[in-house]
């Protein structure tokens, strides 16, 4: 059974339709790459999945449980949305680290705040915080940042900041990790270290959705590719089909602008 089922999502801002009838699903442990030109609706789609935007129509189901259905207004209650968000993690294009916290604190902050809602928090506070810190350190180690745990974001390079942001998203163990153009704000020489981390996550069978302009990376790392244009899914399928042998004219035209991959 698919871990994620997205059905007939529509989203408009004012009179502009940004997403039109978007449907796809994703199996557990798979990586989905979403490609397409700027303004094609890729980012808006990710934002809908993370409840930063509310779709006008359609439904989102994770693990067989319906998280959102536009036809049912009771699903848009603020308090519920907060919990539903935890099924998804989001890595932003511009990192959005919290500047006043160290790398480790960035990773652990949300989990420590969530731990306060546990019934035995008061008795076990020290123990719980210690566990969370250890998990955070372990994640930073996996990102190759053990030495940087005590650094503040402004003391880190862009690539290091983005790896902290990835660790922060992973700390809450979301079912699906979303990446919104994770290397677009980076200098070219720094994209490699971030892509390497995402690649290793794919090898560990992390369920992921990656919006990216790195075509070679999308082809190598993903199990499935979606090509979007003007708010619709033009083509979806295996990367070797969509990227190497696209059927649709629009996909061909888009990919040719990238030259040989």
């Amino acid at each position: 059974m698919a871990i994620l089922e997205v059905k007939n999502i529509e989203k408009g801002f004012g009179s502009t339709k940004v997403l039109k009838d978007i449907s796809f699903d994703l199996e557990k442990g798979q990586a989905l790459a979403i490609i397409g030109s700027s303004g094609s609706g890729k980012t808006t789609l990710l934002r809908c999945l993370n409840f930063l935007e509310t779709p006008d129509a359609g439904s989102i189901t994770v693990n067989g449980k319906c998280l959102f259905n536009a036809a049912d207004p009771s699903m848009i209650r603020e308090a519920d949305i907060r919990k539903k968000r935890l099924h998804f993690g989001l890595v932003f294009q511009s990192f959005n680290l919290f500047p006043q916290y160290t790398a480790l604190e960035n990773v652990t902050l949300a989990k420590k705040l969530l731990a306060k809602e546990e019934p035995d928090f008061r008795q076990r506070k020290k123990e719980i915080y210690k566990e969370i810190d250890e998990e955070g350190m372990e994640l930073l180690r996996k990102m190759g940042l053990s030495e940087r745990a005590g650094h503040y974001p402004h003391q880190l390079s862009g690539g290091q900041q983005q790896r902290v942001a990835i660790a922060r998203a992973l700390e809450l163990k979301p079912d699906i990790v979303c990446f919104d153009e994770p290397t677009s704000a980076l200098d070219p020489e720094l994209t490699g270290e971030v892509l390497k981390v995402i690649r290793s996550l794919a090898e560990q069978k992390t369920t992921m959705i990656i919006v990216t302009h790195e075509m070679a990376f999308a082809r190598d790392v993903s199990d499935k590719v979606i090509f979007m244009d003007e708010g619709v899914i033009v083509e979806q399928g295996r990367p070797e089909d969509v990227i190497e042998n696209p059927r649709e004219e629009r996909t061909k035209r888009f990919l040719s602008s990238y030259g040989n991959i």
């Binding site: 993370n50 409840f51 930063l52 907060r82 919990k83 968000r85 935890l86 998804f88 993690g89 989001l90 932003f92 959005n96 680290l97 919290f98 902050l109 949300a110 705040l113 969530l114 922060r168 998203a169 809450l172």
Partner: peptide, 8 residues
């Protein structure tokens, strides 16, 4: 937004 997606 970063706080929101982290469930704060």
């Amino acid at each position: 937004e970063a706080g929101e997606v982290l469930g704060m």
